[in-house]
């Protein structure tokens, strides 16, 4: 279970998070929605410890993320798909996927790591001959799939997806959404996704949280999304230019 309590974060004079409170239950797929620049990525990075909150606490299964414990073991529980895939250009695809299995506490023999990488590539719909190609040789959709394969390579308990469908055509976006849903259900993992894409929200989410003004504005099951009476949420999901959310930021 991931719990954020009164999390604040500023960059200089700019306040990004102003007291975020959120709980994501174990095995749940929670999607965070909200406008650009509302701090969704910052929130995700705070949970991973990439950004240190100014105030508040974040716990994963009761353990505080800022506590000085075994960082390697802590991060080994997570997988993350980055917005731009963040694949390592200098490494072939299979070494990107098996990165964690080639070093550190989860290190496996090289041939075994390669076999696992090829299996994970197959799981995301890529053929084994992609394994020896370099990321720059792949299309955007294929890079996303490789990023997804890397995120699940070490069978993590918690997976983060940062804008998983950004920059993809609607069909490829649909394929990625389906893959995410299947993988999360199949692995029983806790998933936290941030997106603007309402199709993704409906395909991936068990629960939805809306971040606005540095706080969680609305939080509830995906089924209640369309019947909720919050004007901010309604404006966001209908994509209306008129409503309480300022359109000029």
């Amino acid at each position: 279970m991931i719990t954020l309590t009164d999390v604040h974060k500023s960059f200089g004079a700019k306040q990004i998070l102003r007291g975020v409170n959120l709980t994501v239950e174990r095995g749940e797929s929670c999607v965070i929605i909200g406008g650009s620049g509302t701090g969704k990525s910052v929130m995700l990075k705070c949970i991973l410890g990439l950004v240190t909150p100014d105030r508040g606490t974040i716990t994963v299964d009761g353990e505080e993320v800022t506590a000085s414990g075994d960082r390697d073991a802590f991060l080994a529980r997570f997988g993350m798909l980055f917005q731009g895939s963040a694949l390592f250009d200098s490494l072939p695809v299979w070494q990107n996927v098996a990165f964690r299995l080639l070093r550190g506490s989860l290190k496996r023999p090289r041939h075994e790591a390669r076999e696992i990488a090829i299996e994970k590539l197959r799981r995301v719909g890529l053929s084994p001959d992609v394994a020896d190609q370099f990321p720059a040789e792949l299309s955007g959709g294929m890079q996303k799939r490789v990023g997804l394969a890397r995120a699940i390579a070490a069978d993590p308990e918690i997976i983060f997806f940062d804008e998983p469908t950004t920059g993809l055509d609607p069909i490829m976006a649909g394929v990625i959404n389906e893959l995410i849903r299947e993988i999360v259900v199949e692995m029983g993992a806790t998933a936290l996704t941030i997106t603007h894409d309402m199709t993704s929200v409906r395909a991936i989410a068990d629960k939805v949280a809306m971040l606005h003004g540095g706080k969680i504005r609305w939080h509830g099951p995906v089924a209640q999304l369309d019947v909720a009476e919050d004007p901010y949420l309604t404006q966001f999901i209908t994509g209306s230019a008129h409503g309480p959310i300022e359109t000029v930021r």
Binding site: L75, A86, L87, R103, L106
Partner: peptide, 16 residues
Amino acid sequence: TMKVTEQIDALVTLST
């Protein structure tokens, strides 16, 4: 370039 494209963040999340 690695920093701008979040590859450095990716390294951290991969326990490196």
